[in-house]
Design a protein around this nucleic acid. Sequence first.
DNA 1: GTGAAAGCGCTAACAG
DNA 2: CTGTTAGCGCTTTCAC
Lengths: 329, 329
Amino acid sequence: MTIYDIAKACGVSIATVSRVLNNSEKVSEKTRQKVLAVIQEENYSPNPFARGLGLDSMKMIGLLCTDVSDAFYAKAVSLVEHELKQRGLDMMLVCTGNDLNEKKKYIQFLLKKHVDAIILIGSPFREDGDNSHVAEAAHEVPIIAINSLLELPNVYSVLCDEASGIELAVRRLADNGCRNILYLYDNLTYSGQQKIRGYREGLEAAGLQKQDKFLCQVSKDLISAQQMVQRLLKQQLPFSAIIGSEDIIAIGAQKALSAAGIEIPVIGCNNSVLAECATPSLTSIDNRLDILCPAAVDVLTKILDNGPQAAPSQTVFPAIIQYRESFKE
Amino acid sequence: MTIYDIAKACGVSIATVSRVLNNSEKVSEKTRQKVLAVIQEENYSPNPFARGLGLDSMKMIGLLCTDVSDAFYAKAVSLVEHELKQRGLDMMLVCTGNDLNEKKKYIQFLLKKHVDAIILIGSPFREDGDNSHVAEAAHEVPIIAINSLLELPNVYSVLCDEASGIELAVRRLADNGCRNILYLYDNLTYSGQQKIRGYREGLEAAGLQKQDKFLCQVSKDLISAQQMVQRLLKQQLPFSAIIGSEDIIAIGAQKALSAAGIEIPVIGCNNSVLAECATPSLTSIDNRLDILCPAAVDVLTKILDNGPQAAPSQTVFPAIIQYRESFKE
DNA sequence: GTGAAAGCGCTAACAG
DNA sequence: CTGTTAGCGCTTTCAC
C-alpha cells in the first residue's frame, strides 16, 4: 500500500494525497475528505523511510543516557519519552555507561542515524574536561542537556540548582546543631561538582569550618558507602550528620549507622523510590526531574519548530528538599 | 557526502561502493582497499533513510515496556539495549502504562514505523484476555515476549518460571514453620497469575490449607501494601510470613510489620535494588532478567538472520531465591 | 569484477 | 486547487 495506490483509488495525483497527508491548506475540502476516507479505509500509513529520505528527518530524537537501570536516569527517560511522544517525536535510546570515550562514540553514532536532536541525560563530560565532542555534535543538531551545564552554541541546558539544594540541606543540618557534616560523593561530573560546591557554600554560610576529611568519595553503590562509613566510624571521625550525593549512598550510610546503633541525620539526593524504601525513610534533595524533563522537551520542540533563537540556552529550576524520617525539618 | 562522492573520488561506480559497504564478495581486494580508504578519509557513512527505503528495514527493534521508571522494567530495558547494540541493532522505546488499549495502540504505532521486530517487556495482556492485537502484529514482524507466555505463530516467549520460584519460597517458609503465608499481589497479568499459581501449589505441596483471606490484592506501591498489612494486623489475621509479588510491596509490608514490632519472614519478587535497600534487607525471588534479556535478543537475531524456525518458541529459565536478612534459609 | 540503470515511496518546486 | 516531475541516497538486478 503506497501513496500511488491511494492516489489511484481516489482518482487524484500522488501530490494531492501527499498534501492531505501533510495538512496542506491547498486542497479542496471535498477532495480532502475523499482522500482521508480512502486512507482510513485502506488503513494506509506513509512509509517512514521514504519520508525520511525526502525530508532528511524521521522526527527521531536521540537520548543519551549513562545507565537506564539506575532509578534516577530511568525516571528521566520515562518522563522524556512520555513528553516526546505527546509531540509526535520518537526516540532512540542509547546507554553509554560512565566511560567518556563511549559517550563520544555514541554521540557520533546518533549523528550517523540522522537524529533530529540529541538529549543528554546526566553529564557526558567533566566540567574541566574536553567537551569538543559535544561542541562538534552541536554543529549538526541541537543538543539539550538535562541536569548539566554546557555553554556552547546550539546546546541548551535545562538543569536544577543542586548546589543550592545541598547548601540548604547543610544549613538546615547546621540549624539543628550538626557541626560536622560528612559528605559522601561518587563522581565529579558537572552535577557532582556543583553539589560539592553547594556543600562548601553551605558550611561557609553556616559558619562551619571546612575540613577535607569530611568529604569522601565512594563508588555509587550501597556496599561502598556502607563500608566507608563503617571505616570512618572505626576511625572515630566525629561527624554528626551525613549527606550522600545519591540516595543509594545515603542508604548505605544509614545501614552502617544503624548497625552501629547510631542515630544522626542522613540526607540523600535524587528523591528516588529508594528514599521511600529506606528505614528510616530518607530525606532527600529532589532535583526536579518531573519539571526538568518536560521543560527540556519544550525547549527542544521550540527550537525544532522555530529555530535556534526560540528558546533560552539555560533554564534553571530550584531544588527542593523532600523531608522524611531520616531528617526532619 | 553521498555514495556518489565516494564513487567519484575512487574512480569507480556507486555499485562498487555499495558492494564494499555491504561486504559483498564480488569486489577485488584492490578496489575494496581503495574504497575503504576513501570512506575512512572522508568519514563517510551511508544515509540510513535511503538504505531503509531500499531494504525496508533500518535494523530497528521496537521495545514495548509498561513503565521504564519501574526498577524492574528499567533493568530489562537496560539489558536489552546493551545486547541489541552489541549486534548492531537499534531500538525504539515506547512506554505504554498499564492500559491495555494503550498497549494495542503502541503496537500499531511500532508497526507503522516499520520496525524489524518487537520486544515486549512484561505482559501486554491478561492471560484470559483478547490477544488478537499481538496475533495480528505477529503477522507483520516477529514478536519476542520477555517474561510472558504467548502461544501464537511468530511470537517467541522467553520467560522465567516464576511459579516455581514462588512455590519454592512457600515451601521454604513452610519448612521454617510458617503455616499461614500472606500473599500480596498487584496484578493479574500472565506473570501475576503464574505467581499466584505458584503460591497455591506451594501451599499444596507443603500440606497447608489454602484460604482466600491470605491472598490480597494491593496496588503496586509502598503505601498501599503498608496500609493493607496494617489493616490485616488490626483484623488480627493470623499470618506468620508474607510474600509480595513485587519488592516494593514486600517493603511496604515490612514497614507495617516493623512499626507494629513484629518480626516474621518477608519475601519479595524481582530482586531489584530496592531489596538491598530495605531494612532488613529483603530476600527476593529473582526472575533472572540478566539471563532472560540476552536470551531474548539471541532468539531475535536468530530469527532475523535465519528465519522463523531458527529459534524455539518458548525458552524457560528457573527462578532462584536471593536470600537476605528478611528470610534466611 | 565492474558499471548502468531501475526502482524503493515520498516531498516539493513548478506549471497549469 | 491539482498534476507532473525531479530528486532524496542507496540496493540490486542485469549486462558486459
